[in-house]
């Protein structure tokens, strides 16, 4: 069922999304998103060798935060704004937990809006990609 205005309150947590993208998933993301920087798929690339691994695209994590919000809305509304900051690198095949909290819920000019605080936590619990979103509910 699409999310509605009465289904949530300030302070509610969004259902989390678990991911551990491997190199094949990152290759699919490169093809879909257009970023073919070898740092994200080629272990022989000098920068990847220096780091000891390829790293996940920052934009993959940004898009995954979008997926988290999209799954929660389930087409009961639209994203007005979505942002994140890239604070730390994430390596492939390591579990990441994406989640968020409703920090504000209000109505403005007849629009039903909510503000979300988002995170991408690595296996050690570090938030490598804090984000936020504003969503508008249909009903």
């Amino acid at each position: 069922m699409p999310l509605t205005w009465n289904d949530f309150a300030e302070g509610d947590a969004l259902p989390t999304l678990e991911k551990a993208p491997g190199v094949t998933q990152l290759v699919k993301y490169a093809a879909g998103g257009g970023d073919f920087n070898p740092l994200h798929h080629d272990y022989a690339f000098p920068q990847a060798k220096a780091l000891g691994s390829i790293i996940i695209h920052g934009r993959f994590k940004y898009a995954a935060l979008g997926e988290l919000v999209s799954n929660w809305l389930n087409h009961g509304g639209r994203i007005v704004k979505l942002s994140c900051q890239y604070r730390g690198m994430d390596m492939p095949d390591k579990p990441m937990t994406l989640g968020g909290t409703v920090v504000r819920k209000w109505e403005e000019d007849g629009e039903k809006l909510a503000e979300l605080e988002l995170f991408v936590k690595d296996a050690e619990g570090k938030n490598t990609t804090p984000g936020s979103a504003i969503v508008s509910l249909k009903g």
Binding site: K28, A30, G32, A63, G66, E67, S70
Partner: peptide
């Protein structure tokens, strides 16, 4: 095709 390619790249299961 481009929407599906992006959705696959992120890992969406949502049929929409």
């Amino acid at each position: 095709t481009s929407v599906r390619a992006f959705a696959r790249g992120v890992g969406y299961a949502d049929p929409v």
